[in-house]
Design a protein around this nucleic acid. Structure first.
Length: 574
DNA sequence: GCCGTTTTCGGCCCGACTGTTTTCAGTCG
């Protein structure tokens, strides 16, 4: 479930072609070419339709004669015949099977050709019935692992990741605000609270015409649904969007009401009652039913005798008590972030050079950033060994000379091996300014083994940050089995920082980050940027940090450069 | 299918792990 730009849609076409070709057993270089084309279009910094119009598609590296032609075909007709033919040849359900960890193209082809299995349901049924025994390549252990894989996949969320939801919501916001008699549109609900995934998108319009007059006629709306309040529609490709409207005199109450969550709201209603008020969607009323100030949310909280409670805190957790005690955190903000400590360059699998990344970091107003390319175990990502890291140091030095106002840290994202050892020797690790360690393999270890593996890495004196500690990718990969509380305890003891990875991972999630912060573990909010446009994802990480009640002091990369360097040195000598 | 300071064909293409097809094919990142 994704809201997609044309770039993303074209990229999706190429990815699908590549997937079908895998199952068809096509030449692997051809498949790679389509995957590269997908990557090229997805990360192209301008709308692909602009390049198509200007006739410059072929100038995009990774697009050649065939892929440029297919891009044009898609932009003109909304389809690519080549893909349509592949879809006729193979059941689309096979592509879903390709996503099952442990099933690759060869096994999926075997399931289809030897057992006529066409989709995940058929596969699950065959696993259950034991009819796969005797099929070449499907021994008892493989079957057991595949069963575990399916169970793990069932735990995957089907909710919309916040990145896609925000993009969709902001687009709708602009469209609705263009309507006459609508003054302003607010994003509300779980999206406003910064939840990492959302079930639907809720909007609130300040205006005098009902939502029914606007929302159903917008482009991309598939159907209009039943709704008690306002109007609800389903938009392409299946997300529900609700729109309520309120006049300016009621907008504060409506915003408060629709933002939720329910527990937070109910407590507000109870408190209002105690004070002799009635808090409703359309305002805060006294006994005499006189409308009190509700043009802003701030006025509602003031009437309830507490300071304003930020949307990210409204989870019915502990925010009312903290508000009573005047102990609400001064939540971290974008302006508090001084740098990004996790980024990639073309030295490994990044899309841009160190120099380009430096320019983008400076443009964001950062004081510093760390170049943290992959280590050698991630061979596919062209990970670096010690020799290449030393070579890279020379380039960093060159770039650094041209950026006097930006401290460039020499770092690495070092793979944590299966046994918890690191992929690089201590001598090179100690040469670096900063070492991030992370897991990119053996996701299926049992919890005790996985936890011990990671604690060994956390305890390594050279390791400063553990990146994406649970390995999840929203909507793609469930977290591996690991005891996060044990990781937090180990991080606390060794003064290791845990990451809130602000990409499509949001890992740590808000609850784990909350626990880490409570334990006194420092967090790093990093984008793991593989391109300059990904630097904007810092906002998503900050929402998670705010949901974890983080103040600037809880976040490593909110420290000024000098303090950061001092912290890194201290941590080196621990 | 893409690409070219190796320029229009012939490279691209890594390395670990795992289970099983008992000598290596398939999968993963």
């Amino acid at each position: 479930m994704k809201i997609m730009s044309l770039n993303a849609q074209v990229a999706e076409v190429f990815t699908q072609i590549a997937d079908y070709m895998e199952v068809a057993g096509e030449n692997s270089f051809k498949i790679r070419a389509y995957r590269r084309a997908a990557e090229a279009v997805a990360t192209h910094s301008a709308p692909i339709e602009a390049a198509a119009e200007a006739g410059t598609l072929r100038d995009i590296e990774g697009l050649g004669e065939a892929t440029a032609a297919k891009t044009l075909e898609f932009l003109q007709t909304g389809k690519v015949q080549y893909l349509e033919r592949l879809k006729e040849e193979y059941p689309p359900g096979l592509m879903e099977l390709l996503r099952v960890p442990g099933l690759g193209p060869k096994k999926v082809a075997a399931l289809y050709e030897e057992r006529k299995i066409e989709n995940r349901e058929g596969f699950a049924a065959a696993l259950e019935a034991g009819t796969l025994r005797g099929l070449s390549g499907f021994g008892p252990k493989t079957l057991e692992n595949l069963k575990r894989s399916l169970e793990r996949m069932d735990k995957l969320t089907t909710r919309l990741p916040i990145s896609a939801a925000l993009a969709a919501a902001e687009k709708l916001q602009t469209q609705i605000e263009a309507a006459p008699e609508i003054e302003r549109v607010f994003i509300t609900g779980s999206l406003r609270r910064g939840c990492d995934t959302v079930g639907d998108i809720n909007l609130l319009a300040q205006g005098t015409i009902p939502g029914e007059a606007v929302l159903p006629s917008l482009p991309g709306v598939l159907e209009t649904l039943e709704s008690e309040n306002g109007v609800r529609v389903r938009i392409h490709p299946g997300i529900e969007v609700g729109l309520q409207t309120a006049p300016a005199s009621q907008i504060g109450a409506a915003l408060f009401w629709t933002t939720g969550n329910v527990a937070h709201r109910e407590e507000a209603v109870r408190r209002a009652e105690k004070l002799g008020y009635e808090l409703r969607r359309d305002g805060l009323f006294s006994h005499e039913a006189v409308l009190l100030q509700t043009q802003t949310e701030e006025e509602i909280y003031a009437a309830l005798n507490v300071p304003f409670i930020a949307p990210e805190l409204r989870e019915g957790r502990d925010e009312w008590r903290a508000a009573d005690a005047d102990e609400l955190p001064r939540l971290i903000e974008t302006a508090d972030i001084r740098g990004d400590l996790h980024s990639h360059s073309t030295w490994s699998d990044g899309a841009v050079s160190i120099r380009q990344m430096a320019q983008a970091m400076l443009a964001r107003g950062y004081e510093y950033f760390a170049v943290t390319d992959h280590s050698k175990a991630l061979a596919m990502a062209n990970g670096l060994n010690a020799a290449r890291l030393r070579e890279q140091a020379r380039e960093i030095e060159e770039v650094q000379a041209d950026f006097p106002d930006l401290k460039i840290l020499r770092g690495v994202e070092c793979d944590i091996m299966r046994d918890g050892s690191l992929d690089l020797d201590d001598d090179i690790l100690h040469e670096l300014d900063i070492v991030i360690a992370s897991v990119h393999s053996a996701f299926t270890l049992d919890e005790a083994t996985q936890t011990a593996r990671m604690i060994r890495a956390i305890s390594h004196p050279a390791v400063d940050i553990i990146a994406h500690p649970t390995g999840r990718i929203l909507g793609v990969r469930a977290p591996y089995d690991v005891n996060v509380n044990a990781l937090i305890a180990a991080a606390k003891e060794t003064r290791t920082t845990l990451e809130i990875n602000a990409s499509e991972r949001l890992d740590l999630n808000d609850e784990h980050a909350f626990a880490a912060r409570e334990a006194g573990v420092l967090l790093a909010v990093d984008t793991d940027a593989h391109s300059t446009r990904m630097l904007a994802n810092i906002e998503l990480g900050l929402l998670t940090a705010r949901r974890a009640w983080c103040e600037a002091g809880d976040v490593l990369n909110a420290k000024p450069a000098a303090e950061l360097m001092a912290w890194l040195e201290r941590s080196e000598s621990r």
